[in-house]
Amino acid sequence: MNRQRISAIAHQYHSIAAPLDSDSADLLLRWGLPVGDERVLDLGCGRGAWLELALDGRPELQVVGVDLDPAAFENVPEVLTGKNVELRVGDAAEYSSEEPFHLVLCMGATHAFGGLLPTLEAARRHLAPGGSVLVGDGYWEREPGPAALEIFGDGSGADPFTDLAGTVDRVVQAGWTPVFAHTSTTAELDEYEWSWTGTLSEWALDHPDDPDSAAALEAARVHREEWLRDYRRTFGFVSLVLRRTDGGA
């Protein structure tokens, strides 16, 4: 069972593919979104949940979403079918546009670029002067054990994260200034994990004849045990609204 299908099923009832509730997402967008007919880009947009939120009450926005999975754009809400919306299937790391964007998002998809700092470098190439980036990534709330490092690592043995202060230091040293942020609460993280594993499990139980049913149930079981035993209250998630320190793009 491929990763895209697992993710699509697991996020069926948690459209934001990150540990954030709707109030937190709304607050982040209020900080990051410009006012008027500006352009918004979501790199690794999934089913376009962030773009849908951005367009709520702001129909003048021009929005573009890029995702590698063509199935992500099946049955999108009506608001994402308008003439001011472009949904493009492709590698977010290879996307290019002649016009810059006033807000660039990459929420929970930094793996597509090789980590937080490469994601910010990619976002910078799309950013209009004075624009903002909204990026979400993991950090360690406490010292991780070997199992947590293996789960979130890339196989090289390198630690993919640091603590929250160290994460902000890296961003600042790379030329960015945080203008707002949200650290996901334990409740948000727990709700996300229960939703992810529960939705995938329920789908498997409801579709016993599907060729992927057994694999989905096993994927949910493994994920649930890793979360509960190896990284709950160790892995954290921070969403940062950033601007270039030098004001440029």
Score class of each variant (00 low, 15 high):
V76F: 08
L41N: 05
V238N: 00
G136V: 04
L120W: 05
P146I: 12
S96M: 12
D206Q: 14
D26P: 01
R224C: 06
P34H: 12
G138M: 12
V104G: 02
L43T: 03
G155M: 10
R221G: 11
E38S: 12
A249C: 13
C106H: 01
D190H: 12
R244D: 04
T177Q: 14
G114R: 09
R3E: 15
R229P: 00
F113G: 01
S22W: 03
P70L: 10
R47C: 04
L33K: 07
R125I: 05
S156R: 09
T110K: 00
G157F: 10
A174E: 05
P19T: 07
S132W: 02
V172E: 15
D137R: 04
N2S: 11
L240M: 14
I16M: 05
D91P: 01
E191G: 14
R125T: 10
L53Y: 03
R224I: 01
V241N: 02
A112P: 01
A123C: 13
N2V: 03
A93T: 04
L127F: 05
C106Y: 02
E86F: 01
G247M: 11
G36D: 03
G155I: 11
Y139E: 12
V35M: 08
G48W: 00
A215R: 13
A54D: 07
A165I: 12
P129A: 13
W50D: 00
E143A: 15
A123D: 02
E52P: 02
E226K: 07
F73P: 09
L105K: 03
H207T: 04
T162M: 02
Y139A: 13
G248H: 06
I151P: 02
L149E: 10
A174Q: 06
E98S: 13
L228C: 09
D56N: 08
F237R: 07
V133F: 00
A215D: 08
D67V: 02
P19M: 10
H11S: 04
G155N: 11
D210A: 13
R30Y: 01
Y95P: 01
P129Y: 13
L240C: 05
E191T: 14
E121C: 10
E74F: 02
A214D: 11
V79E: 09
W50L: 04
